[in-house]
Structures are given as C-alpha cells and as structure tokens.
Amino acid sequence: MNTESMWYIFINACLVNNFVLAYFLGICPFLGVSGKLDTASKMGAAVTFVMLISSMCAYGIHALLVAVNAPFLQLISYIVVIASTVQLVEMFIRKMSPALFRALGIFLPLITTNCAILGLALFQTNKGYDFLQSLVYALGAGAGFTLALVLMAGLREQLGFTEAPKVVRGTVITLLIAGILSLTFMGFSGLGN
C-alpha cells in the first residue's frame, strides 16, 4: 500500500500506532475521563478538535521556522502557539455557543498542553506531511484517541457490575485493563511506520 495515501495515514494514526495504546501519549485523560461513556466520547471529540487545530498551527509554524532558518525553536513555539490558539478557540466557543462550551469547555484547558497534542505536532513535522496529510493524520490520531477512550469507558462501565475483589477496585483494575487493551493493540504493531 502506498504510504502516502490518505487512508494509510488515517489507519496508521488511528489503529496501528494508536496514540494512547501504542505510543502511550495522553494517558492522563485516558485514565481520568474514561469513567463514563458519555464524558469519554465528549472528551474524544474535544481532543480531535484540538488536534486538528494544533495540526494546522504546527504546519504554519513549521513553515515559518524553516523560512527564518530556526528549526530549533520548534518545540517551544509549538507549545506556545497551540496553547494560545486553543485558549482563543475556547473563548470563541464560550461566546458563540454556551451549550457546546458546557459540553467541551472543561476539557479544553486540560488538553492544550497534553503530550498527545504536542506529540502529534512533532510527528507530523518529522514525517514531512503536507497540509492535507497533516489534517488527515490529526483526524486519525483523534479518532484513535476517541476509540481508546470509548473502549475503556465501556469496559469500566461494565466493571461496575462485576464482583472484583475490593482491593483492586478503582485505579488498580483500570490500570490492569489499560494494559490488556494496549496488549491487544500490539497485534497491529509492525504494520505501519
């Protein structure tokens, strides 16, 4: 399969190299907001949204840094630009759509400086994607993150009905399940780049 094709990029980011379960990025929201299916899917949507924005920003900043011949500023400027853009978008949503803000608002400040977001920006630069490819990559990564979060939330909701021993209830069994989930995604390893 052509490694440049959009489908390849999408599947690669979503399943093969899933950001949470293969790269172990964004573990904090993965464990923090996977308690309920409802919040998990909202969080997934928020992360996908921020990823798309940061992907666009990173593409622009990268072009700028190449133009002034200062690629060593990549890391710091990515963080600054992504954080402030998301802040701006958050203000915008708050003004324009209070309902959407209530649904996503509390998550947005949490994920602006998340490693999954920064990781995405750095990966797409390293892979040398063009603008459209970057967007598809971000979409795939967001979909993968949402998938992991929703899978986890579904499992944890079911866990509520099981008779797990009391000492492993809560964080312990969540971590165990996260490990098993990650192991199953290891089945995809080696298929992408």
């Binding site: 002034v68 200062a70 710091i76 400027s77 600054v80 630009v81 802040q87 203000m91 915008f92 003004k95």
Partner: peptide, 23 residues
C-alpha cells in the same frame, strides 16, 4: 530566535488580549 519567538508571543498575547475584550 529572539525576534521569532518574541514576535510570535507578542502577536499571540495581543490576539488573546483582544479576544478577552471582544469575547
């Protein structure tokens, strides 16, 4: 480096300042 990062932060700060007023 100074000019790029300084200009970038200044621009973003200005943008956020405006947004804070407008929004």
């Amino acid at each position: 480096a100074l000019a790029t990062l300084g200009g970038l932060t200044l621009l973003l700060a200005l943008m956020l300042l405006l947004a804070n007023k407008k929004l």
